[in-house]
Design a protein around this nucleic acid. Structure first.
Lengths: 230, 230
DNA sequence: CGTTCATTTGAGTGAAGTCAAACCGAGTGG
DNA sequence: CCACTCGGTTTGACTTCACTCAAATGAACG
């Protein structure tokens, strides 16, 4: 994918804690992969800003939006967490963001206390936590660059590219948008109307085609990469 | 400090790796606190985007700006690193940002390879790395909320408050600005002119006073907190 | 088939950007 | 000691991109 350094609101390859490839402590990782599954309806919260941080969650299905709500209703989405990603990592006693499903989802619940206690003994696990958070940090910084410096068109094009790079489920060049326009707007620091107008412009330019509003077909990925800027 | 959740371009309490309070492995931490000191001139780079990540640095004096440069010259500053902060953490083989001094500075150079090798054996050290990066992540997300949702006035007021909260050096209510207007602009996703105009407006409102352009006296911190929004 | 929620489209406004010039303080050298 | 330069900052005039308000359209579902 051209412009691979651009990852918007998503971790390059997900924030995986589970040991990759051969690891001496794959068993300890497994222990934390076996939590109870919780079903989340669209718009339901997994946790809220201020809640005690009792669990870490791994997304199994659907998409969870991490967001910060300002007093007057403005909202910034920090990241869309996809299957395989972890949310709720960190060291604070309480959550400092909302986590809300953008569509029906399933998450696996893992005890935060147990995880951290085990990590204080198992250097391998602690290192995997470190790497997972480092990946999230890179993603957050990438989004910051986009929101701070790029035009609406650049942000949207970059967003579509980052989704197409990550969501390797269906066919190449087809990107599902399992979230509302307002979610995309709040991720990119734009308004719903600007997101809609920009998508329309991409359609009239024949760079993308949109089916039922939720499925984007990338017709000209080179042009899309150009529009995304660097 | 009112609105304490707002931390702009700075880690709440710095990204400290060194063991806090009583720790069983204070000695291993110490081992990494003894690197050679390097003097950095204003505008000089500590490292560049793309350089191999051979060292981690701890700021001893001055301020280092972490930034991403876009192809056409646009720049987003990710964070200002102050004394006590670490830069260059992460798991990638190469740096993905520039690190540049905004004023004369000193950094301590620590071997990245040695640090990570030790961390793979010492869970305590690995956990401290985890916590340091988690703090950076929280700071990056906080800046993202600011840049994505707030007005120029809100961003600037928040920035001044976050600096006054962190730089506990001199008197209360006096904030040093050891960086150019262009650095502040690139942190907040604004232009030099907008930063300048907003500072002027704060002066005419008698919320702050500015001495020699680099020293901000906060005259009405309650009003400043109001202007910073939530 | 009407209600509801989400998206699109249109018209007008405004906050921040651009371009340009003036200002200011710190060095430097005549 | 003053004139000149130079980088940085401030201020002014004008423009523009994205926002706001408002209405129309479309999709989903009981």
């Amino acid at each position: 994918m051209l412009g691979a350094s651009q990852v918007i609101g998503a971790n390059s390859h997900g924030a995986h804690i589970a040991a990759s490839a051969a690891s001496s402590s794959a068993d300890t990782a497994d222990r934390f992969e076996r939590g109870t599954i919780r079903r989340i309806e669209a718009k339901e919260h997994v946790f809220c800003d201020g809640d005690p941080r009792t669990h870490v969650f791994r997304i199994e299905e659907g998409v969870i939006a991490l967001s910060k709500l300002l007093g007057d209703g403005r909202r910034q989405i920090i990241e869309f967490a996809y299957p395989g990603d972890y949310i709720g990592l960190g060291t604070l006693r309480e959550h400092i963001f909302d986590a809300q499903a953008t569509c029906p989802a399933k998450v696996r619940c893992l005890s935060a206390a147990a995880l951290e206690q085990e990590a204080s003994r198992d250097a391998g696990l602690a290192l995997r936590l470190y790497k997972a958070v480092s990946a999230e940090l890179a993603a957050a910084r990438s989004l910051l660059v986009s929101v701070g410096q790029q035009s609406a068109m650049e942000r949207l094009a970059g967003f579509l590219l980052s989704l197409s790079a990550r969501a390797s489920d269906a066919e190449e060049n087809v990107v599902k948008l399992p979230m509302r326009r307002s979610d995309i707007a709040d991720l990119l620091g734009l308004t719903i109307e600007t997101v809609s107008r920009t998508i329309t412009k991409l359609r009239t330019m024949h760079v993308i085609d949109v089916v039922r509003g939720t499925e984007v077909h990338i017709l000209d990925s080179d042009r899309l990469a150009e529009l995304a800027g660097q």
